[in-house]
Write a protein that binds this DNA or RNA. Structure first.
Lengths: 149, 149
DNA sequence: TCTCCTTAGTCAAGACACTTGACCATATAG
DNA sequence: CTATATGGTCAAGTGTCTTGACTAAGGAGA
């Protein structure tokens, strides 16, 4: 692995990731959800199956409980999530997606597919699948968090 | 391109990019440069050849002149860059890397290579080159900017 | 050359998404 | 039943960006 190859990889990988995030963000906004940031999308990904507590969300997003709490408050205000009493723990509250939150999540999935589609056109289906497989091998398996750059 | 493939690609690409940035950051810090952020690295990339003005740097980084000016001030204080009078324009000042700035840039290049090396081990040289080539095709050709997530 | 508009850069104040610190309510272990 | 840990929020502080206002210098046209 030569140094100029490492540089080329760095540049291409970071530029691709930024293009993907920007593309999704734009496509989601175009579908009428213009008040959500990428961080909210990462939160939705954690809340989608069955909801989560603020603490769980904080761990998923790699931020403090306080920050996650503020994030949830913002999402409640905007109508994307609801706070419910936790069935097993009277201290905790279960944060779940609202109808609008689910709709936005589906829109984000479509936005991602839409953003990536031209890439498959350029590379071809075969190399596209190889790309996904290779990236999956080198990516850490942890939760998908907002960038810390 | 199915939706679950788009999701897998999104997850893998973002996780890989985050891992790369974190790895470089850590390796650069391990070499003694623990007071620089990724944003500074993007600035170094623009300043490396022959220096640049604050306005040029701002355009490269995708931020306002004021923010770029603050960034330069910080880098001057930390000893990574120097401000020189511009040879052609008395209004402008040419920002160039100092000796320490050049050393840090070289360290960052080594850090990138070091971070990526295990990836080549996992994928093999052949698929590694294919990965770089494919990412280069789908990445926008613009300047490398700090993430806007 | 004088005037007018543009551009390079900085100072100041504010926005925003986080952080740390403090605190109460509830759970859990000894 | 007391002691300690955990879930959540309020409040204040921090770092990195923004917008707004300004000065100094370049450049185009009469």
């Amino acid at each position: 692995m030569r140094q100029d190859e490492a540089q080329a990889l760095t540049a291409a990988l970071l530029a691709s990731a930024a293009a993907l995030v920007d593309g999704i963000q734009a496509a989601v906004a175009a579908r009428g959800y213009d008040d959500v940031r990428p961080t909210h999308g990462f939160a939705f990904a954690r809340l989608a199956p069955n909801g989560a507590t603020v603490s769980e969300l904080a761990a998923h997003l790699g931020m403090t409980k306080q920050a996650a709490s503020q994030l949830v408050e913002e999402l409640v205000t905007k109508g994307y999530v609801e706070r419910r009493p936790h069935p097993d723990d009277a201290r905790a509250r279960l944060v779940v997606l609202s109808r609008r939150g689910w709709a936005c999540t589906r829109a984000a999935d479509q936005a991602a597919a839409e953003t990536v589609r031209p890439w498959a056109k350029v590379l071809g289906e075969r190399r596209m699948r190889a790309l996904i497989a290779d990236l999956a091998k080198i990516a850490p398996h942890g939760p998908l968090r907002p960038a810390a750059w």
